[in-house]
Design a binder for these strands. Structure first.
Lengths: 169, 169
DNA sequence: ACCGTCATGTAATCGGTTACATGATTCT
DNA sequence: AGAATCATGTAACCGATTACATGACGGT
């Protein structure tokens, strides 16, 4: 049992289940969209397959509704809570890789101007979205999401700056 | 034939082959490390499997050395050159997702301080690496790589700023 | 001649994506 | 009652990662 490596996908599932206490795949999907969704998206199918994996490894407990939709409900096991906590306690030096499709085009010789125009637009609207989230945030509640959003905003701004400059040349 | 979708991996292989004219997987690996490597890394095995896929799709031509190592040599076919050009000509609105392991930890409640310390260190050294590359760049040659490096530097700086602030609280 | 490292490749596995399929609710 | 959308799940495929394995070359 319990020997699979925790991918980011695993963590997101565990983390969301922890926040919710108990959740169906669909609830996780909703939760993700409203929280990590800003900077990390998952395919909906993963909210069904990943919990299964985690349950098989003993990190989640699976319960099936008796009547009606017979949905699957997941909650953390003790092992699951521990695994998550261990992951959280261990700082990581791993870095983001800047895997940006636009940047890749630029790198391999695409014409900067038209690319930049499209990109500026896209990043602007993303930035606006973030700022709306920020404005809506009361500022109580856990600090993590707030901080992550902060990073998102800073980088979105940087992208807008970057592509704007290229668009104007 | 020729109906596979071009993943970023495909593009990197095609792009590197175009730059080199003709290349063995190992040469591509070296080429990648020295160029895109800054912001996009591939597993070495992919430099063997991906060209095979592309050859099967008619985008690369595979030639095998007769004597000695019997290495595989790849070069672009006309179809391959066209595919690459088409990709290059089409601007993309796709955005980076900010898939940062550190940020994920922060999001799910890791203690900011120790994490930030490790991250600052890592980003600092990455930044230094970039700046060295920048310093070494004579500034002639194609513009794409130069511009991409620019983005890398800007974002690395932003990360250093971000995590420094968190480390100091 | 031997050893270490550079170079080359294949195979197995696993996680992620895409596509399909269907059952509940809600709205008109 | 019917249509639309929300919710739920499975299966097949495909690309990426990991692990293994071996051959050539350069130095001692």
């Amino acid at each position: 049992m319990s020997s699979l490596n925790l991918t980011p996908t695993s963590i997101i599932v565990l983390g969301l289940v922890e926040l919710a206490g108990e959740a169906t795949p669909y609830a996780m999907k909703q939760g993700a969209a409203a929280s990590v969704g800003g900077f990390w998206t998952l395919q909906h199918a993963q909210f069904y397959t990943e919990p299964e994996r985690l349950a098989a490894a003993g990190l989640l407990e699976e319960k099936r509704e008796r009547g009606g939709r017979r949905r699957k409900l997941y909650k953390l096991t003790t092992a699951g809570a521990k695994a998550l906590e261990r992951w959280r306690a261990e700082p990581t030096a791993e870095l983001t890789e800047l895997r940006d499709p636009g940047l890749l085009k630029l790198f391999f010789g695409a014409d900067p101007r038209p690319l930049a125009e499209v990109q500026v637009e896209a990043h602007r609207s993303k930035l606006a979205e973030y700022e709306e989230l920020r404005a809506a945030d009361p500022g109580d509640g856990p600090r993590g999401p707030w901080l992550a959003l902060d990073a998102g905003i800073a980088h979105a701004r940087e992208w807008v700056r970057y592509w704007s400059k290229l668009a104007e040349e």
